[in-house]
């Protein structure tokens, strides 16, 4: 997680999952940034399958409606306008909570399925799977798909674990930026959280917001500083005052940024565009295994 966008969540998630896979772990990398999934760009992959992500939303039945207006009062998302002689359901604002449908005294708002996106599964290596949630264009609610993708990934990991018996599966969730519902859903099933940030006041501000969310969950949490350059100590000061370990500092590199902008595959070589990424990944691995008792889930 990061709060701020563009700090390097995806880069680190791709490197970290590739690293774990190279060390013969069973790994699933999950891109939960469903509004703009991009981890797949940096991986050589083959699609296994893609399923539709479906939610249920109400449709108004005029002949059953008694125009009591209760549906509009119940809707916490302002998705319903109840007029004296007409009810409008704004599908794009609906969170599929069922409140209006179940509480309508005349059952005038039955629920119908609607496709909101896709969940794609890709083969990277025999022990490395990539799963991506992708929201359809025009859809406004990302959190539902984040949750569905996350649960799909966890289910796949459990199935794999059962089938393979010996090995646990490592899941790397690449969370969306921000600190709202979608981010909360993204971290809900994680054992540990890594906050990726950049050494700028903006990076600190949004990371501090994300940290508030993580702190409330009680999950172990650590910081990785990406695009590190000297001159700003805000992240260190914050980490010290909150007692959060800083696991790694990945230095800024113009070469790296250029390779990224071209969508170059992120291969976890020891030295990547002049940066010793391996050392950072080792430090992360050590912290993760220390904080996940009884092995990885």
């Amino acid at each position: 997680m990061s709060g701020k966008g563009g700090v390097g969540k995806t880069t680190l998630a791709v490197f970290l999952s590739t690293y774990y896979a190279r060390k013969a772990n069973n790994v699933i990398l999950a891109d939960l940034d469903v509004e703009e999934p991009n981890a797949g760009i940096f991986l050589q992959k083959t699609e296994i399958h893609s399923i539709d992500a479906v939610v249920y939303r109400p449709r108004w039945k005029e002949d059953l409606c008694i125009f009591c207006g209760k549906c509009q009062e119940y809707c916490k998302f302002n998705a319903i306008a109840a007029l004296p002689n007409y009810v409008i359901v704004f599908q794009e604002l609906c969170h599929s909570c069922y409140a209006c449908s179940e509480l309508c005294p005349t059952k005038a708002l039955p629920m119908y399925p609607a496709k909101i996106g896709t969940i794609g599964t890709y083969h990277i290596k025999d022990n490395f799977v990539f799963i991506e949630g992708r929201l359809d264009i025009g859809q406004e609610i990302a959190s539902t798909l984040v949750k569905q993708t996350r649960d799909f990934v966890v289910q796949k990991a459990q199935e794999a674990q059962k089938a393979l018996e010996a090995h646990a599966t490592m899941i790397v969730f690449d969370a969306p930026p921000g600190t709202a519902c979608a981010s909360r859903e993204a971290m809900a099933k994680a054992d540990v959280v890594i906050l990726v940030t950049e050494p700028t006041p903006f990076g600190l501000h949004d990371m501090a917001m994300a940290y508030k969310l993580v702190k409330a969950s009680g999950k172990p949490c650590a910081i990785v500083i990406n695009k590190d350059t000297p001159g700003y100590d805000g992240i260190e000061e914050f980490a010290k005052s909150e007692n959060i370990p800083i696991l790694a500092r990945i230095p800024y590199s113009a070469d790296f940024a250029q390779a990224y902008s071209k969508g170059e595959l992120l291969n976890s070589d020891d030295i990547y565009h002049g940066i010793n990424i391996e050392k950072s990944l080792q430090a992360i691995e050590a912290w993760v295994s220390k904080n996940t008792s009884g092995g990885l889930k």
């Binding site: 509009q72 998302f77 302002n78 998705a79 319903i80 306008a81 109840a82 007029l83 004296p84 409008i88 704004f90 604002l93 406004e140």
Partner: peptide, 15 residues
């Protein structure tokens, strides 16, 4: 400060 649907609610108030 509604997260979304402020226009819907305001329109409802106007009606």
């Amino acid at each position: 400060n509604a997260a979304g649907g402020a226009g819907v609610q305001a329109a409802q108030a106007v009606v």
